[in-house]
Design a protein around this nucleic acid. Sequence first.
RNA 1: GGGCGAGUAGCUCAGUCGGUAGAGCAACUGGCUUUUAACCAGUAGGUCCCCGGUUCGAGCCCGGGCUCGCUCACCA
Length: 505
Amino acid sequence: MTDLAEPDRLTKIATLRSRGIDPYPAHGVTGTPITQLLQGAGSAAAPGPLIGTTVTIAGRMLNVRDFGKLMFAPVIDRTGRIQIGFQRDKLTDWWPDRKLLDGGDLIGVSGELGFTQKGEATVWAAEVKLLSKAVASPPEKWHGLVDKELRYRRRYVDLWSSEGVADVFIKRSKVLTTIRRYLEDEGYLEVETPTLHPIAGGAAARPFVTHHNALGMDLFLRIAPELYLKRLIVGGLERVFEVSRNFRNEGLSARHNPEFTMLELYEAQADYRRMMEISEQLIERSAVAVNGTTRVTFRGKEYDLKAPFSKKPYTELFRTKNGFDFDDTSRVKQRALELKIHDTGDPWKLMNDVFEATVEDELEGPMMVVDYPVQISPLAKQKPDDKRLTERFEVFIAGMELGNAFSELNDPVEQARRFEEQVASKDPEAPGVVDWDYVQALEYGMPPAGGLGIGVDRLVMVLTGQDSIRDVLLFPAMKPQHGDTPPAEIEPESPVAENTRTSRT
RNA sequence: GGGCGAGUAGCUCAGUCGGUAGAGCAACUGGCUUUUAACCAGUAGGUCCCCGGUUCGAGCCCGGGCUCGCUCACCA
């Protein structure tokens, strides 16, 4: 047992057993969802149809108020909370055992639904069954769990003890349902592609490295599913999407978790204009599904997510904020110095860093930045009328990037050239080797296609008004707790790469 | 990694000038048939994050360290 287990409650378990009561019975009680009971109860002034009938509920009992011959306690289930009234006169045999129940215990109760003198809907217990004895106390009754670290570590308590927490995750689920339903209606196929990648491609990020013993090789946890999904477009599946858990070995923040969920989709014969429409639809429909309106409040500001979103060219935003063109490399360098941006040696990364520092944070949105320079868009197709730019856009809300999409580059020769350029660049986040298998796929011919990625966690943040990504993840990344037993060491047959970056030597 | 803040009972927090460690809730005992953070009386509960220093005396002052939160940087 851990030190959360209270000796007194453990003693009660022994007492229960000695009286022939199993504190952890094999079978539960099927109850009516509490919200349904409350609806059927109506109010004391206008009693509903369930008043006076015998009902059954199952849930967690909290906060017992004992009057000696009468006792009240709320019981919660996933739908709501209702009060149970225990009366000695109606529970003569059970009454002496009531002290064996504690706040936090899971119980099943049957009895007549009625009201108290104060008019609160109450189940007057006629039968009580202990379903599971809690040996740890529930959180303090009026502050609840306030310590953020404890809330994340003990999400299993936070979910039922903190107001609104479960609701965020119910909404998150609704967002995913909405996305799936919409894409299925559009003729998309949901697919699953590998999480273990021999080459960490499809995005610029530092990967996690792991090791496969039988194959005797290092593998990367995927940083994006992109290159596999486009192989499926070559394969003729035409419209595919994946809800992909991606892993990036980078810093943590209110917007970044090492594993996060990305929706990626690809559609043959489409281009980035079609992706704009899909982005707008996905976001607008998700907003309506969870909030019933396209209006949301996020970080103190109101946004209307109604389609269509405004669109502005990258180059124009760049010029307006900086006073010179994005491809004026000497002035970009100078500006980067002014902004104290670290120069990795890659002039185009520097240009984009200047863009991010000067433009992105102020993009309240919802808005789409369109037509990105080709040098920072290695997988996007060039614009026919301006080869310096690509058919690419990103969606921003509240200065936060929510989505990224483009007309997919399907020219194998050009793709190989860009991969080689990337590998030769000084960007530490660029892949270390060319993905020749992907180039080979393109050599067979990929139809013109549009692709889109949407950060699901961030979308849920905006839709539920949560400032931190940790509040939309059930179990956000945490350091192991001091004193935790470390996980069993697995002996690799050969050492895992020393550096977490893609090796480029 | 930088900046700011925090660490005292199971939980939420006080702790004055450096002088015997406190409250509410939770727990335990007793009372109470209509409460809503029920109430009343009582009991128990402490490595004041750790190590060192100053001092007659340190929760408090000094030095070092650890952990956590927020934030900036990196990143989506």
